[in-house]
Computed example of a mutant assay.
Amino acid sequence: MPPKAERGANMTLNHYLGSDRPLPAGSFGYVFSYQKYADIPKSDDPSALHNIIDLSHLNDTLFQVFESDLDAAGLEIADVTALPWRQKLLITKPYVYGISGSFTISKEMREQSPLSFEIGRKCIGLLLSHMNDHMEEGESMEIYSCWDSELEMDRNPELDSTLHLPDFQLGDVFELADKQLIRVTK
């Protein structure tokens, strides 16, 4: 899973999804196979963990193996509805989920880091597809982002926006910004 955006020491930009009904939680979009540890090709790098520590006791253990960095990118959705701090979030929907993935793309990123751009496009596409699959026409969901220690701070209404899924085309620019509430409609 790609790292979350960070701000200073121990600060993470968290993203939340609000819904009027329960949604499936879990991991989505990862592409992997299982292989025994003994069958996974090992690096010749002398500082690689398998060259420093004897891991032969893991030889028959199955591990997830990703063919590419893009295969290792995906969407994580966790239900946070019942957690006590959930009430501090500025989401008006009764069901709330923490979402993790890479949710920023830009033209500069496409030029300077094409892989990061493609990972971002994949994660954003997975999120929007998941929302589309679990909304009926006329319904809405909310996405809200904030730094982990700033749950109680007001959102920035200048950043608020509405995204109508049937009309939306993912281009070269997309970002879930701090203190932003996005109402997604269908």
Rank of each mutant, 00 (worst) to 15 (best):
Q112G: 10
V65S: 07
Y16W: 13
I40Q: 05
D54R: 12
E158N: 10
T104P: 01
G29E: 06
A25M: 05
S100T: 02
P84E: 10
F117N: 12
V31W: 02
A48I: 11
A9F: 14
F63G: 08
E137D: 11
S27N: 08
L13R: 12
D60E: 15
P46D: 04
N10I: 09
E158K: 05
L49Q: 15
V184L: 15
G18N: 06
G138T: 08
Q87W: 00
E137A: 09
Q180M: 15
L70R: 07
R86L: 02
T61K: 13
E136G: 04
F103M: 01
C146R: 02
V65D: 06
K36E: 09
E118K: 12
N14D: 03
I99V: 14
Q64S: 11
S161N: 13
L170Q: 08
D79S: 04
G26I: 04
R110W: 00
E136K: 07
M153F: 06
H134V: 00
D133A: 15
F174T: 09
K186I: 06
P2F: 03
E108Q: 14
K186C: 08
N59M: 07
L55V: 00
C123Q: 04
S106R: 02
L58R: 02
H134S: 01
D167M: 07
D60V: 00
Q180E: 12
T92C: 03
S113E: 14
L55Q: 04
E136Y: 07
V65H: 03
L176S: 06
K88R: 13
